Amino acid sequence: MSYASAPVEISSIASQRDADAFYALNEEWISRLFVLEDEDRAVLGDPFGRIVASGGDVLVAKEPGDGAVVGCIALLAYPDDVFELAKMAVVPATQGRGIGRLLIAAAIDRARALGGTRLFLGTNTKLAPAIHLYEDAGFVRIPRNRLPVSDYYARADVLMELM
């Protein structure tokens, strides 16, 4: 599946180059603002095995000319047609171009195409611009007991879902 728009082209992860960019983009912001947890390393280090093989996907946003990855977002599959929206990152120099908004919309479409009936995410109050994007896309805040998992990232102090 491929999404195209004027600023970037969005498609499913397809190469080791895409996987390396997914790791690097997320490692940068997580390490800068929080602590890279073991689960982060596991998922980021093996997106094909930990995400795609389990029925999820990683979408990457690329510059149309040189194919440089400037953003990414993951969909982690859970039982009962539930997906987690995770690991969204946009290269700082390209922020403000609407890439995050496009990634979220593409991920919602992809989750539906994969049969998803519920999409949830965890974020942090330090990421106010991301929270605004999620709210604009229709996500609403939920209490921790609404999560489909019991052991969830310590840094996630804002939990949201889209039914």
Score class of each variant (00 low, 15 high):
K126L: 15
A137E: 03
G49I: 05
I30H: 01
Y152C: 08
M160F: 10
R155Y: 14
D40C: 10
E28V: 03
I13E: 09
F120G: 02
L159T: 09
S31W: 05
S11A: 14
M88Q: 11
K62P: 04
E135N: 04
G116N: 00
N26L: 08
G138E: 11
D20W: 05
L162I: 10
T125H: 11
L33T: 14
S15H: 01
F22P: 00
L44M: 10
N26T: 01
E161R: 11
L162Q: 10
V90C: 05
A130F: 08
R101G: 07
S54N: 12
A113T: 09
A21K: 05
I142W: 07
D136A: 15
G96P: 08
V52A: 11
L33H: 13
K62N: 03
P129S: 04
F83G: 06
R32D: 11
D46W: 01
R50I: 08
G96W: 06
A86Q: 07
N26P: 00
M160V: 09
P92L: 05
G55Q: 08
E37C: 02
M160Q: 08
E135L: 10
Q16Y: 06
E84L: 00
L162C: 06
S31H: 01
G71F: 01
I51E: 02
F22R: 08
E27Y: 09
L127H: 00
G115A: 08
A113S: 14
P129C: 02
G55R: 12
Y23M: 00
R118E: 05
H132G: 12
S2Q: 13
A93M: 06
L36C: 02
D46V: 04
E28F: 08
D38T: 00
P79M: 00
L75E: 04
V43L: 15
P79N: 07
G138D: 04
I108H: 04
K126T: 09
I142Q: 06
L133N: 12
A154P: 01
D66V: 11
L103Y: 10
R97H: 13
R110M: 11
S5L: 13
P7Q: 08
M163G: 13
Y3T: 03
K87Y: 13
F139L: 07
R97K: 14
V140D: 09
A106F: 04
V35G: 06
A111Q: 05
R118W: 07
R118Q: 03
D81P: 01
L75D: 05
E84K: 12
S2G: 07
V91A: 15
L59N: 02
F139K: 04
G56K: 07
T125R: 15
A68H: 13
S31E: 06
R41K: 10
Y153G: 12
L59P: 05
A111M: 07
A21S: 09
R155Q: 15
A19G: 02
D40W: 08
R17M: 07
S54C: 14
M88I: 15
L162T: 04
R97L: 13
N26W: 01
A156Q: 00
I13T: 09
R146Y: 08
E37I: 06
N145H: 15
F83M: 09
